[in-house]
């Protein structure tokens, strides 16, 4: 009786999982083994791994995602650290979260306004006599905008792990003779690694498949796997190839999750 009731409560969740997570992934995998006329083939994978274009695209995606993650981490960690120390920490966090409520495309268009030939930034550069420059459609502008968009997702988990850190650990480190810098590097940073890993997952994976900004800001100079998938599904109508790249992306996500998982350390480490 009771068990039946519990089971009936879980039905919506299983339905959701089945229809919107498991089924699409299965369809994607099946699709990736089909050619243009729908017959089974391994050609898509063969093409992917033998074509210089696809491999370069993959490398580009990973490379740019890596750089974007690095930039966001470099900016976010000190920012989260300072914010966690401020009096109204939750208010500052709200300010960081606010921009994420604005649509991604709107933010991209806002940057076009800033970076264009007659935009605010170039006006300023002209004013101080060093402009104007070509800012749009460069790798730099792509990196800036991508990092800007991803920063809140990096700050949030790091901020949370820092806020949850018991202050007595910091006192203990100082008490044992560590300067504030040593306390940061030897105690605070290692103990907030959980937040850093969560932040990397939240930034690296979505950045791998970014495609709108690559076109609007990067001017398709940076072609990532996300762009390739869009092209295959909407332009060339080669769903098989698009699915194959999708599967590759899912594998890459799994790999990232695996590399940044929480590892329980084991065994002797002293006497190193």
């Amino acid at each position: 009786m009771n068990r039946n009731r519990t089971f009936s409560y879980t039905i919506p969740y299983y339905l959701w999982l089945g229809l919107f997570v498991i089924a699409p992934v299965i369809l994607l995998v099946i699709q990736s083994f089909g050619n243009l006329s729908g017959h089974f083939t391994l050609n898509n994978y063969a093409t992917y791994f033998s074509s210089g274009t696809y491999l370069r695209m993959t490398f580009n995606s990973v490379f740019f995602a890596f750089i974007v993650t690095g930039i966001t981490l470099l900016i976010s960690y000190p920012m989260a650290y300072i914010m966690s120390r401020l009096k109204h920490a939750q208010f500052w966090l709200l300010l960081v979260i606010l921009p994420t409520w604005v649509n991604l495309l709107l933010k991209a268009y806002a940057f076009i306004g800033l970076f264009s030939k007659t935009g605010t930034v170039n006006n300023f550069l002209t004013l101080i006599g060093v402009g104007p420059h070509q800012l749009m459609f460069t790798n730099l502008s792509f990196l800036i905008v991508a990092a800007y968009i991803e920063i809140p997702f990096m700050i949030m988990p790091i901020f949370n792990s820092l806020i949850e850190l018991d202050k007595s650990y910091i006192n203990a480190a100082r008490d044992l003779g560590a300067t504030s810098w040593q306390t940061l590097t030897k105690v605070i940073f290692p103990m907030s690694m959980g937040g850093v890993k969560a932040g990397i997952q939240a930034v690296f994976i979505p950045t791998l498949s970014l495609f709108m900004i690559t076109r609007l800001i990067g001017g398709n100079r940076v072609i990532t796997l996300g762009t390739a998938i869009e092209e295959h599904f909407l332009v060339t109508q080669n769903w098989g190839m698009g699915s194959t790249i999708g599967v590759i992306l899912i594998v890459a996500m799994g790999l990232t999750m695996f590399l940044t998982r929480d590892r329980k350390k084991k065994g002797a480490r002293h006497g190193k």
Binding site: D166, S168, Y169, N171, A172, A173, R174, D175, L176, G177, A178, T179, K186, V187, P190, M191, M193, R269, H270
Partner: peptide, 27 residues
């Protein structure tokens, strides 16, 4: 605090969970 010749045993111990016993005592 790091320059004072006193040390503290904390109420909740505040042992660093990312280090083992040796690294804690050796800190």
């Amino acid at each position: 605090p790091e320059k004072r010749r006193v040390n503290t045993v904390f109420q909740n111990y505040a042992l660093f969970p990312n280090m083992n016993v040796f690294d804690n005592v050796a800190f």
